[in-house]
Design a protein around this nucleic acid. Sequence first.
RNA 1: GGGCGUGUGGCCUAGCGGAGAGGGCAGGAGGUUCCUAACCUCCUGAUCGCGGGUUCGAAUCCCGUCACGCCCGCCA
Length: 591
Amino acid sequence: MFLSLRAEVEDALEGALSSLAFPTDDLGIEQPPEDVESVLASSAAFRLADEAGAPPPQVASRIAAEIDVDELTYVGAVRTQGPYLNFLPSEAYFSETLAAGTDEAYGSIDGRNESVVVEHTSANPTGPVHVGRARNPIIGDAVANLLAFAGYDVDRHYYVNDAGRQMAVFTWAYETFDEADLEDDPERDRTEYDLVRYYRKGNAYLETADESAVAEAEAEIDAIMQGLEEGDEQTYERVSEVVDQVLSGMKTCLERLPAEFDEFVKETRFMRDGSTDDVVDRLEDLDEAVYEEEAWQLELEEFGIEKNLVFLRSDGTSLYPTRDLAHHEWKFDNYDRAVTVLGEDHKLQARQLRATLDLLGNDTEQLRQVLYSYVNLPEGKMSTRRGTGVDLDDLLDEAIDRAREEVEERLDDRIRDDDLDEDDIERIAHQVGIGAVRYDIVSKQPTKAITFEWEQALDFEAQSAPYVQYVHARCCGILEEAGFDVEAGECPDVDVDAERLEAPEERALLETIARLPAVVDEAAGDLEPHQIATYTREFADRFNAFYRECPVLADGVEPDRRQARLALVAASKHTVANALSILGVAPPRSM
RNA sequence: GGGCGUGUGGCCUAGCGGAGAGGGCAGGAGGUUCCUAACCUCCUGAUCGCGGGUUCGAAUCCCGUCACGCCCGCCA
C-alpha cells in the first residue's frame, strides 16, 4: 500500500508544483521521523524558497493549498509543519493494508518475467566450510530469496572451481598419500573432513620436502593441469573423484543453513565445451591484447585498471579468469541478469571480469557483483589449507546446543500451557540457533568487517533472530488460542473494518505492515538483504507495543474489535514470517 | 608506494543531504492475578576518527589527514 501511496503523493506533488509554475524535478520526498504523524513527507519547499521569493514555510503552505485531498485515495490529509509537507494516511490506506496483509504471500511482488542467476558461495572444494566464508552462503541465499520474493525468476548456482591448480594439488595428494601418512583423524565423520587431510598433507609436503621430491610432485601436478586443459577424459575423472566427494560434504553442511542450489556449475565444463578456447581466440584479436613475457595479456587501463589481465599462460593453459569469462557469457546467454556474491579479496578480479566482458561485446549492465568482507578470528585469518578457523558445522552445533539450553531453561516458568514435547524443543533449538547465526550475519552491511566471537554470534537477546522470531510465535499463539489452525494456514476473516483499529499502537503497526512491499522492492533493487533485517526489528518493536497495549482475546474486548485485532495479528504474522523467510530465518510457531 | 573499503556513546549496529543522530549489549531503577517476560517501561552514556570546504541545511557530498581491513601472482 505504501508504494501506491507514494505514487499518489508523487503525482499530487508534481501537479501542485507545476500549477504553481515551480520546477518538478525535485519533489523532495522523504520518510518523516518516527514521532511525526505522517507516512510520507516532502522537503521541497526548502529548495523552492529562492525561486518563490518566500520563506520555506510559506512555500510549503502554498503547495499544500494546491493539493486537493478529496481526489486522493490513500492520502487522508496534507499538513505543513514549518517547511515540511506531511502526508497523512487515509482510512482506505489502513483498511486496504489490513486486507492485503491477510494474504499469506503478502509483501511479494508479482512476476516480472525476468530471470536472474544468483551465484554464491562457490568455495573451492578443498575442505570443510569455515566461518570465514560463511557470509557468502548466508548473504547469497538471502539475496536469492529476496529477488525471488520481489518477483524475479531466480536460479541459484554454485560455481565449482574444479580446474585450478589447487584441485590438481589435491588430486595429486589424494593419489599419492595413504591414510597411514596422515597424522590426524578426521574432525568429523564426513567426506570433506576426511579428504581435507590429504590436501593439507600435500601442501605441507610441497613446502617442506626436498627439492627433487618437490620437483617430481610439481611435474605430476602440471600433468594433471595439462590433462584438464586438453580435455583428457581420464584426468577429468581423477579430479572429479576428489571434487565430487568433497563437494557433497560441503553441500551437506550448507544444507544445514539451509542454503541450497539449483545447479553446481563446474569450471571444467567451459574447457570441455570449447567456450574457453573461443574466448581466448576473441581476446587475442582485441586491440587491448598484448603478448608479453610469453603470455597473452589484456591491457585494461581504459577502465582505470593498471594491472594487466593474463588470460593465457606461457605454457598455453588458461587461467581461472579466462574460464570465468566463458562462464559469464554462458550466464548471459541463459539469463536476463546475473548476480554474483563474492569476497572483497576478489574485487580487482571482479572489475577485470566486468571490463573484459565489456570488451568482448557483452552488456555488463546485466551483471551485479555483491561484495562482502571476510569474517576473521581475533587472532587472524581463517584458512582451509592451514587448518585454522572455526568450521561452520561447529558454529551451527554450538548455536543449536545453546538454543536448546535456553528452551529447557525456560520450560519451567512458561505461562503458556502448550505442552512442548521433545520434538518441539529440538525444532525450536534448530530454528532459533541457526536463525541467530544467520540473522547476526545478514543484518549487517556486507562491507563491514566482522571479527568472529562466539558470545556475539550467539547472543539470543534483543535485536537478534529470536527477538523477531518471538513476535511470530506470539502471533501464532494468539491465532491458535482463537481457534485457528495456524499450521494448516487458517486465517481470520478479512472482512473487517480497519476503523476498529484506532489505538496509536494499532495504527503504527498497520503503517509498518504497509511498508513491507516497498522495503522488499528497495532491498531487491539495492541487493541489500540487511534492509529486510532492519525492517524486521522495527516491525517487532511495533508489534510488541501493540501486544502490550491491545489485548485481542481478553474478556472485555468487544467482538468487532476482537475480529479486527485478529485480522491485524494475521497480517502481522504474514509480514514477519515473510520477512524472516527472505533472510532464511525460520518463523517458529511456538518457542 | 598505489587502488578500493570501513571508522557513529565502553562494546555492536541503523541512518548515507533535510524535522533534538535511532536501536541493542553492558550498567542503574521498575514491571507477570491479564493473548508466552527470548517481552515491556524509565534512567545513565556520542563534539558521528580528525582538519578544512560546498550548502539555507553535512554523520551523509568534496579535499586533505590518521587508523584498520582487503587487493596490487603466468593462484583461485
